[in-house]
Design a protein around this nucleic acid. Structure first.
Length: 440
RNA sequence: GGUCCCAUCGUCUAGUGGUUAGGACGCGGCCCUCUCAAGGCUGCAACACGAGUUCAAAUCUCGUUGGGAUCACCA
């Protein structure tokens, strides 16, 4: 059995978004689970839209997510190779020149549609005479090229969708070279997958039809046909795949305090029969990947749900998973994590316990009394209960009337970890001053 | 419009002819805490529609409706 190799092949025409991330993640997880290799390939054949800035941004997001790659390639650096293959394919009669303008093509499509016909390319270019071509050249028209699909049934066994088949006659011959000589994604992608020994192609189901034509390309260049797996596309809350989903960037999520492993856990399990639960390492998550548990329907992605999941993810996050980013020790982390909405908020509590806080005085009589009753250190586990019992007895207050003013005075916040946990962390001196209404 | 895919609680899903249609998330209630949060328990809630096959259909067949993908000189 050959070693498996997968690739994530983004086009640097935007930042990493949730759809991209999901594809990259599944590829990475599959490689990890199978002990294979994960490759990054920059599909920058579209000069007009590709930008270095986006490429850098994607690399950064990928690294932040933990989706590291062990090798990489760039399509714009491989044009010589594509040209070589193309020339051979032209000789084989699998690639042919066409001279229609985009406008003419658009017109043909519209006309076909209005007649109730499928807007499939009519292969008019296959019937050009030498004179036709000479005339086009004389007009100054430059050819674009299409890959000729052979008639017949194309089928493959999709790792997610099972057996898939298409009749080639229902497909358009894909354009593979633009009028300006640049390549479109189809053929370079196949050449690269073949040259780099990609064994599995996992991508969104928007590519299923492409797969049919690409299988013929793999065969035409004499390459190994990889195994395909097509993930159902994520849809937005409203049903349609919204533009918002496309623009929902990893960078924004990160800035909002969403944890990388929350994103990965959520995306890996959404749309599967497994419950969405937190994983704290990609390796653990990888072991649970199972194509047979991926549904065929399109799951709805809801960013609010992700954010909610993220909060729970933080509440149970082990110290080891965050310690590199923390200034506090394990005990402190465990005391406050269940109240955090973002990891960085641990600083807020660190400051409340160790820094200076301006107390809010809600019931001065009560907090003054509480200050006077507060025993000096050393404290024991029972100190808080004993102290509060006295305050309760003396003030006659209980429940919220009792706790709220004290919490506000002690922490300056209306909610947070249990006061019993917090008090020892704050210490006598600060606690006393704050209860007295002084900044401390 | 052609081709392909899909359809079970609000959401993600289990279910492969006989189930009180199960779980998870969310939502409601209760409990725990002398407060909030966190936590525990519990409740509400679904087979898109219509035929057919069958003793029996969420499950099989056909149709309808609805959703999605693709049919780009984007990837």
């Amino acid at each position: 059995m050959t070693k498996i190799k997968v690739r994530f092949a983004p086009s640097p025409t935007g930042h990493m978004h949730i759809g991209n991330t999901r594809t990259a993640l599944f590829n990475w997880l599959w490689a990890k689970k199978m002990g294979g290799e994960f490759m990054l390939r920059i599909d920058d054949t579209d000069f007009a839209r590709s930008k270095k800035e986006y490429e850098d941004s994607m690399r950064e997001s990928l690294k932040w997510l933990g989706l590291v790659w062990s090798s990489e390639a760039r399509q714009s650096a491989r044009f010589e190779r594509y040209k070589e293959v193309t020339e051979k394919l032209i000789q084989d009669g699998r690639i042919y020149p066409c001279y229609e303008t985009p406008e003419e093509l658009e017109f043909k499509r519209k006309r076909a549609l209005s007649k109730g016909l499928p807007p499939i390319y009519d292969r008019q270019a296959l019937n050009y005479t030498k004179e036709d071509i000479a005339n086009f050249e004389k007009e100054g028209r430059k050819p674009h090229y299409r890959f000729k699909l052979n008639d017949g049934e194309i089928k493959w066994n999709d790792a997610i969708r099972g057996e898939v088949k298409y009749e080639a006659s229902n497909l358009s011959d894909p354009i593979i070279i633009r009028e300006d000589g640049s390549y479109l994604y189809h053929l370079p992608s196949v050449i690269d997958d073949s040259d780099f020994g990609i064994t599995h192609i996992l991508r969104g189901e928007d590519h299923v039809t492409n797969t049919a034509s690409q299988i013929q390309m793999f065969e035409a260049i004499g390459g190994f046909v990889p195994t395909f797996a097509h993930l159902p596309l994520l849809t937005g809350k409203e049903g349609k795949l919204s533009k918002r989903l496309g623009s929902l960037g990893v960078r924004e999520l990160r800035a909002d305090g969403v944890e990388n492993m929350a994103i990965c856990s959520y995306l890996a399990k959404l749309g599967t029969s497994e419950e969405i639960r937190s994983f704290y390492s990609l390796e653990d998550l990888a072991q649970t990947l199972d194509f047979s548990k991926i549904g065929r329907a399109q799951p709805k992605f809801d960013v609010e749900e992700l954010k909610h999941f993220n909060v729970k993810h933080i509440h149970t996050m082990p110290f080891d998973a965050v310690k590199d980013r923390l200034k506090v020790n394990e005990e402190f982390w465990n005391d406050v994590k269940a109240n955090l909405e973002k990891v960085e908020d641990v600083d807020v509590w660190n400051n409340i316990c160790n820094g200076e806080v301006s107390p809010q005085v809600e019931n001065k009589t009560l907090t003054d009394m509480a200050a006077d009753l507060l025993p000096k250190e050393p404290w024991t586990d029972e100190t808080f209960n004993v102290w509060l019992g006295e305050v309760k007895a003396k003030s006659g207050l209980k429940g919220k009337d009792l706790f709220h003013p004290i919490r506000l005075a002690l922490t300056g916040e209306a909610s947070g970890p249990e006061l019993k946990t917090l008090l020892p962390l704050i210490g006598y001196k600060k606690a006393y001053e704050r209860l007295k209404g002084n900044k401390a």
